[in-house]
Amino acid sequence: MEPNEKLSPDNQSSKHFLSLHISHKGNQKAFHLKKEHTLAICVAACVFIGGSAVTLGSYFHTKNELLASQQELMEAERTNRKLEQTSEVLQDEHTEYTQNIDSLQEKAAELEQKINELEDVKNSLNDQLNHISANDNASAEIYNAVASCFVEAKPAAANFTPIVTTSFNKVTSLGVQLDRIDSRINQTGLSFSVVATDVTETLSAYSNIPSGLPVNGMLSSLFNPNGLSSISDGRVHYGVDISTRSRILPIVATAAGTVIEADYHCAYGNYVLIDHGSGFVTRYAHNTENLVSPGDVVKKGDVIATTGATGQSTGIHCHYEVILNGVFQDPMDYQ
């Protein structure tokens, strides 16, 4: 072929890698792509397709992560709501426990006060028992009476279940136990009070120290050993006169002791003299009738005579004297 020879269309298309012929309305058009152009288009297509695939993969991966994050957020919100509800319940329980604990502390203080009161009564009884003379003939009887009182009033052994406080949910159980203990202490305290009264009365009955007056009535003459004009009618008087307003009433011993005289005297009339030991002697005079005899042992409160107006007397009354180691005492000092 000569250099200047023109190529035919068929020869021209043979130099192109890809030729595309398009016919439109009888006209034909041809598009020719060289090899390098085709390669560039293929590379571009591969890049586009690869980029699209990577983009779609990233999109779906991001979408899945977003959904997972939303689910985690919803779960966290549910957990937070549960925690808030639990916190409210715990706060209510804390308030209730605080109130219960305050109530238990008050109850414990009340129980402690009751126990202290019982201890005081016990100590008082012990003191009274210790004051009884070991040589007193009535001591054995007193101790037997006291012992029998305690035996009769001894409460049954308490059968409490063990208290275990391992957590706050035991507060209610502790309150129930304290209520039971409080009830038991109340019952024991009542029995103890009865025993204490019996013991006190028993000790008082055997006490050798005069106390109180031998008869109920009105004081008509006071103690006046020096005859002071400012006291009663100003005459010397070694005791007190107790008027019973013309009624004959029983006269009782003001302390335990032994009758040493029960006789008649021109001044005292019918009288009773009791030796209480420890230097104490009491006299009861102007009696209508003496109801005891020398040698009789009496307790405090025993009836020994009746009021009267025998001897030098202007009305029915009881003349009462207290003598300590031979010295007259004011009976009003022994009330």
Score class of each variant (00 low, 15 high):
residue 250 P to Q: 04
residue 114 K to I: 05
residue 53 A to P: 05
residue 49 I to S: 12
residue 56 L to M: 10
residue 63 K to G: 00
residue 114 K to E: 10
residue 119 E to N: 03
residue 235 R to P: 06
residue 125 L to N: 04
residue 101 I to V: 11
residue 3 P to I: 08
residue 199 V to M: 00
residue 141 E to Q: 14
residue 234 G to Q: 04
residue 218 M to H: 09
residue 228 L to P: 04
residue 257 G to V: 07
residue 88 E to M: 06
residue 228 L to H: 06
residue 146 V to C: 12
residue 103 S to Q: 12
residue 160 F to I: 04
residue 21 H to G: 09
residue 195 V to T: 01
residue 260 I to S: 10
residue 90 L to F: 11
residue 139 S to K: 14
residue 29 K to V: 05
residue 52 S to H: 09
residue 245 R to Y: 07
residue 13 S to I: 11
residue 209 I to A: 00
residue 258 T to M: 14
residue 245 R to F: 08
residue 281 V to G: 00
residue 27 N to E: 05
residue 322 V to W: 12
residue 78 R to K: 11
residue 112 E to A: 08
residue 246 S to E: 10
residue 318 C to A: 05
residue 154 K to C: 08
residue 55 T to R: 14
residue 180 R to Y: 06
residue 8 S to G: 02
residue 284 Y to M: 06
residue 28 Q to A: 02
residue 212 G to H: 04
residue 114 K to C: 08
residue 125 L to K: 02
residue 164 V to C: 09
residue 259 V to L: 05
residue 231 I to K: 01
residue 212 G to D: 02
residue 232 S to A: 11
residue 296 D to S: 15
residue 192 F to W: 06
residue 231 I to G: 01
residue 321 E to R: 06
residue 47 V to C: 04
residue 121 V to A: 01
residue 289 E to K: 14
residue 28 Q to V: 01
residue 237 H to I: 05
residue 229 S to V: 10
residue 168 F to Q: 06
residue 67 L to P: 00
residue 236 V to W: 03
residue 236 V to H: 08
residue 143 Y to I: 13
residue 66 L to D: 04
residue 142 I to N: 01
residue 165 T to Y: 13
residue 324 L to G: 01
residue 84 E to T: 03
residue 127 D to K: 09
residue 210 P to V: 13
residue 302 D to V: 08
residue 297 V to D: 03
residue 97 Y to A: 09
residue 23 S to D: 01
residue 55 T to G: 15
residue 95 T to K: 09
residue 265 H to K: 15
residue 13 S to K: 07
residue 266 C to F: 15
residue 92 D to S: 07
residue 202 T to A: 04
residue 139 S to L: 14
residue 187 Q to H: 11
residue 296 D to Y: 07
residue 8 S to V: 12
residue 63 K to D: 11
residue 109 A to K: 15
residue 29 K to N: 01
residue 115 I to K: 07
